[in-house]
């Protein structure tokens, strides 16, 4: 698990927001700032950060991707700890950087990856004093790279378990891909949508003790965006919320309930 090698609890962390925060989904990164601050941490947001290169690498453009990876390392290696709000981007840093970079960059990648945390895991390990309360029932989507590259299944369940009033209803297919897959969604739109539809059906069938989940929660804004935009195109009611936004809403100053569109409500 990323970050596991660090013993001393970092007091200052750098937030890795991901290009998704700049382009389409600022909510999760802004919410993460509030949650980490509430946990007593000093959070810095390196202004020079752009993108981890994942979309280029997965589209077959290795060299351009490596250029962005090297830049990512330069931007984040001065920090003792890096916390990322996209499970998939953190998985890229953790798994792909050292695999595709060469020479001295490989070692540098390994060293910074060892100090890089996925947000949910960080909250689980280092921010356990949060006072969280939210009256809601949600379901969790295990995004692929967080689940399989980072091997992260338990932290989200335990963190959600700390929120008073929250019920987690597990979906039968919580480990199945949402069909986004970066440029896969553009190359194979019908296939990608059919995969999203499988997830939508699964969410609709999910119950826990007679309760129906009000929102789908995950640690990847892009998966949630794919699912909600597919639902929107089909005229289906689906509400999604990033785990950071959910936790921000559950903080003492927060609304302590989820607004219809958490992307605007919980974040600012």
């Amino acid at each position: 698990m990323s970050g596991a090698g660090e013993d001393a609890a970092p007091r200052t962390v750098a937030l890795f927001a991901s290009c998704a925060a700049d382009l389409a989904a600022p909510g999760p990164a802004l919410a993460a700032l509030r949650v980490l601050a509430a946990a007593g941490l000093r959070v810095e947001v390196p202004e020079a950060q752009t993108c981890c290169g994942q979309v280029g690498l997965n589209s077959g453009h290795r060299e351009p991707a490596k250029r962005l990876m090297r830049r990512w390392i330069e931007v984040f290696e001065p920090y003792d700890a890096v916390v990322g709000v996209s499970g998939s981007c953190v998985a890229t840093v953790f798994h792909q950087f050292a695999r595709v970079l060469d020479g001295e960059w490989r070692g540098r990648a390994e060293r910074v990856a060892a100090r890089t945390w996925e947000f949910t895991r960080f909250v689980h390990d280092r921010a356990d004093g949060l006072d969280l309360e939210l009256d809601t029932c949600v379901t969790w989507h295990d995004s692929c790279h967080m689940l399989r590259s980072l091997g992260e299944k338990s932290a989200p369940r335990q963190v959600l378990g700390r929120v008073r009033g929250l019920t987690l209803a597990e979906a039968a297919d919580n480990e199945v891909c949402c069909g986004f897959g970066g440029t896969f969604a553009l190359k194979y739109p019908e296939l990608s949508c059919a995969m999203a539809d499988g997830k939508l059906d699964d969410f609709a069938a999910t119950r826990s003790g007679g309760r129906t989940p009000e929102q789908v929660v995950s640690a990847d804004a892009t998966c949630l965006l794919h699912l909600s935009l597919r639902a929107q195109a089909r005229g289906l009611p689906l509400r999604t919320v990033h785990i950071a936004e959910l936790l921000a809403a559950a903080l003492p100053g927060g609304p302590r309930s989820l607004p219809a569109d958490a992307r605007d409500g919980a974040a600012t």
């Binding site: 927001a17 925060a21 700049d22 382009l23 389409a24 989904a25 600022p26 990164a29 802004l30 969604a185 553009l186 739109p189 019908e190 990608s192 949508c193 999203a196 965006l225 794919h226 935009l229 597919r230 929107q232 195109a233 992307r263």
Partner: peptide
């Protein structure tokens, strides 16, 4: 993208 999905709202771009 629009084959089956609503386009993301890029008015959010830069808000972060």
């Amino acid at each position: 993208w629009a084959r089956g999905r609503t386009l993301p709202d890029l008015r959010e771009a830069g808000r972060f």
